[in-house]
Design a protein around this nucleic acid. Structure first.
Length: 426
RNA sequence: GGGGGUGUGCCCGAGCGGUCAAAGGGAACGGGCUGUAAACCCGUCGACUCAGUCUACGUUGGUUCAAAUCCAACCGCCCCCA
């Protein structure tokens, strides 16, 4: 990662502001003064309800990275305890309750992923699990110490709960805010944490924590929220046809991850560069100002940078090569390759079967339709004959290139060993 | 606990005994135009051994020649009363 702002003259808060990380801040001046007085400890929470983190989590992770680069201590809090309750903020419906074991598995994976962004040496950064202090809580003491300072009136008036009040809100979920506020208090006591960051939908929870710390400890602590990102077309960031854009390489191959960024809307490129890469601001500005076909250059940089952050330089380079090979009609080693099993080849399968088996279409029916619509190309030639079959002779020594649309392609080779497709097989 | 609703394909949403693989919209995908972008136009959009068959309208059973459509129970959700 590019080092930026370390010992530099630009204040990290200004950097964050300029890059678009800050949506709301509880007390900008106070926080700045606290930071100027010396390194502070801050925390950011992750909810273990998903099996992997996704691009949405990238934002808080990168914000934490910037803060850590500026010398502040990062604490990544995993909600092993709160995950068992479920945050109702901004949700339309109640969340399904997860099994304890599922939460623990998710948590382990997420901890691993966050380690790629933050230094977690226990000195400059560490991870904690709030199950540690939440699971052992006793009801009556908790109610007396924490519950007594919360106002139900105020909670009900909060924007985040409005939607849920229409649809119904269980008492379990209603308690979520108390628990998150308690986390802040606990981390303040244990680790001297004075800042919590989170998504803008967390605002109510963060502020509740600030209030709680003030009441119990008479200390001022701070909160900052990140904007909830939407794409230029108004959709939620990070959604694709097949689901979320996962950071886990098994759930979303690096190639697909890379492609996600290449296919981003033009209008989002400048904004995303500032948020999702660690490139200097002026470089982001330069790339973001490109217009017309040149935007592709900016997208290539965006895709490479983010993929590098998440999957490493090697995987990013590989994805980039595959993407380039995608646009040329020639057979290339860089293309995702699928080795057709000898057992299948010997049956002289129709091409639509091969298209489906190679993962280029979800089903044979879809492969058929794609062919009928002229969307399948074999070595650059449209392949529309449903009866055409794939034979050893057709493959030749170097194999062939099957292309579906502009964004999917694979080299089909004759081989008995199992090939690895870079595509998400469904 | 009592009363009333409701549950449809990725999402929203029509259908209310046969003509329903299920209108319409959105999303998505393919073609055209381009720049692996947006907008726009065209097409597709359950599966399979593809002009045929199978699986689908919360779940399970029932009525009927025939059910997404009627009945019962169950499950989930919503509203009113307690």
């Amino acid at each position: 990662m590019a080092a930026e702002g370390v010992g530099g003259s630009v204040h990290v808060l200004d950097t964050l502001k300029a890059r678009g990380f800050i949506e709301q801040s509880s007390d900008p001046e106070g926080l700045r003064a606290a930071m100027d007085a010396g390194p502070i400890a801050f925390y950011v929470g992750f909810d273990p309800t998903g099996p992997s983190l996704h691009v949405g989590h990238l934002l808080p992770a990168l914000m934490a990275w910037h803060l850590q680069q500026a010398g502040h201590t990062a604490i990544a809090l995993f909600g092993g305890g709160t995950g068992m309750v479920g945050d109702p903020s901004g949700k339309t419906e109640a969340r399904q309750l997860l099994m304890e074991q599922t939460i623990r598995d998710n948590l382990a994976r997420q901890r691993d992923q966050i380690g790629r962004f933050l230094t977690l040496d226990g000195e400059r950064g560490k991870t904690v699990d709030n199950a540690e202090w939440l699971m052992g809580l006793e009801y009556i003491p908790f109610l007396r110490e924490i519950g007594s300072v919360f106002s139900v009136n105020r909670m009900l008036a909060a924007e985040g709960y409005k939607q849920r009040l229409e649809k119904g809100l269980s008492f379990l979920e209603f308690n979520y805010q108390l628990l998150q506020a308690y986390d802040f208090l606990e981390l303040h006591r244990r680790e001297g944490v004075v800042l919590q960051i989170g998504g803008n939908d967390q605002w109510g929870n963060l502020v509740a924590g600030i209030d709680l710390v003030r009441r119990k400890e008479q200390h001022t602590v701070y909160a900052m929220t990140l904007p909830l990102l939407t794409t230029a077309t108004g959709a939620k960031m990070g959604k694709t046809a097949s689901g979320a854009v996962w950071l886990d390489g098994e759930m979303m191959p690096p190639f697909d991850f890379y492609q996600y960024w290449i296919n981003v809307d033009d209008r989002d490129v400048g904004r995303f560069l500032k948020l999702f890469t660690t490139l200097p601001l002026d470089e982001c500005a330069r790339l973001g100002a490109l217009t017309g076909p040149e935007v592709r250059t900016a997208k290539a940089v965006l895709a490479r940078e983010v993929t590098t952050l998440v999957h490493g330089a090697e995987a990013a380079a590989e994805a980039q090569r595959a993407a380039q090979a995608m646009t040329s009609a020639t057979v290339s080693d860089d293309l995702p390759t699928w080795a057709i099993p000898e057992s299948l080849l010997s049956e002289a399968p129709a091409w639509f079967v091969v298209v489906a088996e190679a993962g280029l279409a979800k089903s044979r029916s879809e492969a058929r339709r794609l062919m009928q619509g002229g969307g399948v190309k074999l070595d650059g030639e449209a392949l529309t004959d449903l009866d055409a079959v794939c034979t050893a002779a057709a493959l030749g020594a170097d194999g062939v290139v099957l292309r579906v649309g502009k964004k999917r392609a694979a080299r089909i080779v004759r081989e008995t060993g199992a090939g690895v497709s870079l595509f998400t097989r469904t």
